[in-house]
Design a protein around this nucleic acid. Structure first.
Lengths: 140, 140
DNA sequence: ATGCAACTTCAAGTCAACTTGAGGTCAAGT
DNA sequence: ACTTGACCTCAAGTTGACTTGAAGTTGCAT
């Protein structure tokens, strides 16, 4: 089982070294060992990173992600809360489908003001008052 | 056509007054007029706010949202770029479906370490290297 | 043995998106 | 006429998620 160093992980995951170190700092990931100073990672970290990236897309904060996918017991979130999260994601998927359709409408509808276009209005009919999901900033 | 004041908008949209003023400041929305000092909004702002909330869920920055849904011509983003965005959302929907399934797995699978569970691995098989979508922080 | 690219640490900086607080205004009800 | 509560402005503060920069270390190819 050979270990990878941080440059390798960066290349395969698309996540910058500084970010990987930051993730380690906040307890999201660990390196398996060191080779001199250098962090050595097990290849399976890549799966974990994919998961983390995914969860960020889902609007989870790093703290929440740590809670959900932690191996350490004291950090873990109860199962039914996780199930609730899954349902929330499901809801989010539905909303994104609306957004996607709204965008396609905006791209295709010749009307100058979409806000007043009746078929546009209809699209958004289902979208009500919602507390926004948690989000985080770009990686440029 | 009666106008609503900011408290009304807050109540119906779930968006705080400070946020509404901030949105106005950055050009995302406008108030129709003032009653004394007080902002007066047309009811259709609610649709617009729903759309903004939706787009944030989709990971758009406020600047991007302004570009996509602006009535002002000079801010507008070309149609084919919007179509691309829609396709991106579609991709995001697929990834979120994976995340949802992964969460359900974590909630239900008795294995202590999901990272090593083969059926969990399989779930994430399709998720590769991806540049993260743009995100923004929570509203507490 | 030497050079250097690829790592390292640590503190400070950045950025978007808000929030907070102090101090002020004003319309409407009593 | 007065009080009150809902609004206002403007500057400064906060938070999460990173990034940057300076200064140091080290495995490895030459």
């Amino acid at each position: 089982m050979k270990l990878l160093d941080i440059g390798e992980i960066t290349e395969r995951s698309g996540i910058r070294p500084s970010t990987l170190r930051y993730y380690e700092e906040v307890g999201l990931i660990q390196s398996a060992s060191r080779h001199g100073l250098r962090r050595q990672y097990e290849p399976q970290i890549l799966t974990r990173l994919a998961l983390i990236t995914l969860a960020k897309t889902g609007g989870f904060s790093l703290t929440e992600i740590a809670g959900i996918f932690s191996e350490e017991e004291q950090l873990q979130i109860p199962r039914d809360q996780i199930r609730e999260r899954a349902d929330l994601i499901d809801q989010q998927i539905k909303e994104l489908a609306i957004l996607r359709d709204a965008l396609r409408h905006v791209a295709d509808c010749p009307a100058p003001s979409h806000m007043e276009c009746p078929s546009f209005q209809r699209l958004l009919k289902t979208t009500g008052k919602r507390k926004p999901a948690k989000r985080k900033p770009p990686t440029k």
